[in-house]
């Protein structure tokens, strides 16, 4: 079985700072990490491979330094890694990203065998759209299974797969045919620790680097800024609220009195709650 896992290297957005005056991102010292959601996809892929045999190809579109993340993925046990890197990709939105990734998956298929499964994470923590997965599926005409919490069954010979998909208000049990694209839900597993041998293999392995041309992309107008229908016109900081919270004066008050004052404050502001609670109390 051949599995492709799409993985992105992202800035650890918890550590991003904004210039107070210019509102631009100050990137200095912001570490990059593997998009945490993609690790659930990777672990699921590893489990399937361990169980059914075959190989895993990691795919990232990003700057040259994304190689570090791909190597790390190999240390977890992935078999090979492809880095799609080219200045033509700069400024890609989800449509352009899914175009580039889908084309590269085509090329990966030609080189290492058509994938039976393509995995993506649920979403990225920087782009944060959850749209790249569905975009790839559509372009490659793969059956699309999003928000998958569990793979219940997979039958390679019959080319069938059954999954549990998180839907609004419940879990959908879906069955479809391979090949398909799965976006993996968070919390469905936790990434393993690779063996010593895997880490040494990863440290020595070569990350395959492809330009747009290497990946078989002919029409560069579909890439990067030019291939992105969306245009970001304005970036700004959220406006602070005019007035700050009104603080309850607690000087000299015991905890119970503070609680009383707080309750009074709440009820004064939304008197309707009083009615709701009275009714709730009465109904018991």
């Amino acid at each position: 079985m051949h599995i492709v896992v799409c993985m992105k290297q992202v800035p650890d957005s918890g550590q991003i700072r904004v210039h107070p005056v210019t509102n631009t991102i100050m990137r200095q010292g912001v570490p990059t990490i593997i998009n945490p959601y993609d690790l659930f996809a990777l672990e699921q892929a590893l489990q399937l491979r361990d169980q059914l045999g075959g190989s895993i190809t990691m795919l990232t579109m990003g700057p040259p330094m994304a190689e570090d993340s791909l190597r790390k993925a190999m240390a977890f046990g992935a078999d090979r890694a492809v880095l799609l890197t080219d200045r033509y990709f700069a400024g890609s939105d989800t449509l352009a990203t899914s175009f580039a990734l889908a084309t590269a998956i085509g090329k990966i298929g030609a080189r290492w065998g058509t994938p039976d499964l393509v995995f993506t994470g649920k979403q990225t923590i920087d782009g944060d759209t959850a749209q790249v997965g569905p975009g790839i599926a559509k372009r490659l005409d793969l059956h699309q299974l999003t928000y998958v919490a569990r793979i219940a069954d997979i039958d390679l010979a019959a080319r069938r797969i059954t999954v549990e998909r998180r839907a609004e208000g419940g879990v959908q049990v879906l069955a479809t045919r391979l090949p398909c694209l799965i976006t993996m839900l968070e919390g469905s597993n936790s990434i393993r620790r690779g063996s010593m041998a895997d880490s040494m293999r990863a440290a020595r392995a070569e990350v395959v680097k492809w330009t747009a041309a290497d990946a078989g992309i002919e029409d560069l107008t579909k890439c990067g800024l030019r291939g992105s229908p969306t245009v970001v016109k304005r970036v700004f900081a959220p406006s602070p609220r005019e007035e700050k919270a009104q603080l309850i004066d607690t000087t000299g008050l015991g905890t119970d009195q503070v609680a009383q004052a707080l309750m009074a404050g709440i009820l004064a502001r939304i008197p309707a709650i009083e009615g709701d609670l009275q009714r709730a109390a009465a109904s018991y």
């Binding site: 602070p240 609220r241 700050k244 919270a245 009104q246 603080l247 309850i248 607690t250 905890t255 119970d256 503070v258 609680a259 009383q260 707080l262 309750m263 404050g265 709440i266 502001r269 609670l277 009275q278 709730a280 109390a281 018991y284």
Partner: peptide
């Protein structure tokens, strides 16, 4: 406190139980 409307500077582990008690008493639930 920059975006809350109402606030108390204090220890939540003590105020929360007291607040539960206050509401409970008021509505006898």
């Amino acid at each position: 406190f920059d975006f809350a409307h109402l606030g108390v500077v204090g220890d939540a582990t003590r105020i929360l139980p007291a607040l539960s008690e206050a509401f409970r008493a008021r509505f006898a639930v």
